[in-house]
């Protein structure tokens, strides 16, 4: 078998604790909000790097988003990835999961020679978990979602993974090439390597591709390529809670609480 080529897909998301909703316009305030690589995508990247250490080969990172995301791709290079690609074009903006998975799949096709494509199970912002199966469908490969643990079986061209299910689990085997989505917390992502950091910043192989570079049908990307539309937004009605603070010693608080909860006891 030729050396393993793993592609890790990462998304850059605003840090959840920094998200503020503008109470007048009901839009997300993005100004000054710090971003990060989506946490489960870090688990996917870590899995890719660990597999490379074990089996040899190379790791390529791919992301879609504005030019500012190169910063995060350099971080991935500093962690150990060999190459990075950013798919960046205004025409990609406003994509739903169909258009996003199509765009990423076209980028991955252009990168080429892939064996294993690893994604995080879901993003902390969109949280749809639909992009990994979508990429697998566009590329016509097997898929393994919610992988907690994944092994490449040497020589056989197969991967074996443990998938988490509701309460239980499943162990499945799939032929390469294959798309897998990795459970959040499946591993401990490594820190970046300080020596690689200098290399990543100075000469890390980072390529930015626009829509014309990756051979996409302009009708199938971005907002125009997205069958779903946002038909309106509203402020989530905070359910009316009593917010009664109970005072006193723990014993007094406990007694006061029990009196209020009689109906449930």
């Amino acid at each position: 078998m030729r050396p393993l080529h793993i592609i890790a897909c990462v998304k850059v998301v605003p840090k959840p604790e920094e998200i503020r909703v503008d109470s007048e316009t009901w839009t997300i305030q993005r100004d000054g909000v710090r971003s990060e690589i989506n946490p489960p995508d870090m688990n996917a990247l870590e899995m890719a790097l660990a597999l490379k250490e074990q089996h040899g080969g190379r790791v390529t990172v791919v992301a879609m988003g504005p030019p500012t995301f190169v910063l995060y791709l350099r971080l991935a290079l500093a962690m150990g990835a060999d190459e990075a690609y950013l798919l960046s074009d205004r025409a990609f903006a406003g994509a739903d999961t169909l258009a996003t998975s199509y765009t990423l799949a076209q980028g991955i096709r252009k990168i080429g020679d892939y064996d294993l494509i690893l994604c995080g199970e879901e993003s902390s912002d969109g949280a749809t978990a639909q992009v990994p199966p979508g990429i697998a469908e566009w590329l016509n490969t097997a898929q393994i979602t919610y992988a907690e643990d994944l092994e490449v079986l040497p020589g056989s061209g197969m991967v074996k993974a443990r998938r988490e299910l509701t309460g239980g689990y499943e162990v499945i085997q799939a032929p390469l090439p294959c798309v897998a989505s990795v459970k959040a917390g499946a591993n401990e992502p490594r820190f970046m390597d300080m020596e690689r950091k200098a290399w990543a910043e100075a000469e890390g192989p980072l390529t930015v591709w626009t829509a014309t570079d990756i051979d996409v049908d302009p009708e199938m990307i971005g907002l125009p390529g997205s069958p779903t539309i946002v038909d309106g937004v509203a402020q989530a009605e905070a359910s009316e809670r009593k917010r009664e603070f109970l005072a006193g010693t723990p014993e007094e608080q406990a007694q006061a609480l029990v009196e209020r909860l009689r109906a449930y006891l």
Binding site: I19, V21, V230, D231, A234
Partner: peptide, 9 residues
């Protein structure tokens, strides 16, 4: 995003 808003799709 953020749980504070609802979107209709």
């Amino acid at each position: 995003f953020g749980g504070g808003i609802l979107a209709y799709i």
